[in-house]
């Protein structure tokens, strides 16, 4: 009788042991993941929500890009040469910007101006070097349609590579201005950039996103990092451009973060004197 009771006790003890051990074994993976999960960025995203900052969904994937050098091409450069082919328009150069008036206006759909303009841009006789540009909805508005130049499969968001079409109140394009970045050269092998989420949380941490505001979009594009003194060459870097709208006073600002080292970029690029390199 006594022996049976001991057996009962042992049975329960071992059963309990088995259940606990088996449970911890099967749940182990989940435990390790959850212990890593609430990382700094998650915490910051939560804080942002508490400060009533809304945002588009932010990706946590690292992207990649290059340091790229290039020169604005003017009348005597590639843009000037290709402009010789242009027809049915009168153009002239203001330093290195091409300004042109079309002989006949082009009617565009105000919602999708690119439908008609893509045809124009891809025609060598209408737009010089047009195949290097892509429609940019974010920079366009009712009166101007902007096409940005492509650099290593990304937009070049800089006044150095843009076509800006003027649209009148009858939704007609009558003329445009164009700049072109020539001789784009990759300076350093491909490198990883910070993620979209990273860029936004970084700005928030540095108090650049005010409370009660909305992150409308965050896009990775090339912008100018610095000017050099040799042959007007400039260096471009992948940049997270983030548009923030403050809900109270409805102001919109664009913030820029260097996507390689996450420094906050100034609106005017710095200049370096490279004359000593020529020696």
């Amino acid at each position: 009788m006594n022996f049976k009771r001991i057996q009962w006790i042992f049975l329960f003890a071992f059963l309990l042991f088995d259940l606990i051990v088996a449970g911890s074994l099967f749940l182990q993976n989940r435990f390790t993941i959850t212990s890593n999960a609430p990382n700094r960025q998650e915490v910051i995203l939560k804080e942002m929500r508490a400060d009533e900052i809304t945002s588009v969904p932010l990706s946590n994937h690292a992207q990649s890009g290059y340091y790229i050098a290039g020169t604005r091409s003017g009348k005597n450069g590639e843009l000037g040469q290709q402009a010789d082919k242009l027809r049915d328009q009168s153009y002239h150069f203001n330093t290195d910007e091409l300004a042109s008036d079309l002989e006949t206006g082009v009617k565009v759909d105000p919602k999708h101006p690119d439908k008609r303009l893509n045809r124009l841009v891809n025609d060598d006789h209408s737009i010089a070097l047009g195949s290097h540009y892509k429609y940019d909805a974010q920079l366009s508005d009712r009166r101007t349609v902007v096409y940005t130049q492509q650099l290593a499969d990304r937009d070049l968001k800089s006044p150095d590579g843009q076509i800006r079409f003027r649209v009148n109140s009858n939704h007609e394009v009558l003329g445009y201005t164009q700049t072109y970045l020539a001789g784009a050269r990759i300076l350093r092998p491909k490198a990883d950039t910070i993620s979209q989420r990273h860029a936004v949380t970084w700005l928030y941490k540095h108090n650049l996103i005010p409370n009660n505001s909305q992150v409308r979009w965050a896009e990775l594009a090339y912008t100018k990092l610095l000017n050099t003194s040799s042959h007007n060459q400039a260096v471009y870097v992948p940049t997270w451009i983030i548009e923030v709208r403050t809900k109270n006073d409805d102001t919109v600002q664009q913030l820029r973060v260097n996507a390689f080292n996450s420094t906050i970029m100034r609106s005017t690029p710095s200049s370096v004197n490279t004359s000593s390199l020529g020696k």
């Binding site: 340091y67 050098a69 350093r188 050099t228 260096v235 870097v237």
Partner: peptide, 8 residues
């Protein structure tokens, strides 16, 4: 060094 520069 961090930022590469073009050489002509």
């Amino acid at each position: 060094v961090q930022v590469p520069l073009p050489l002509s």
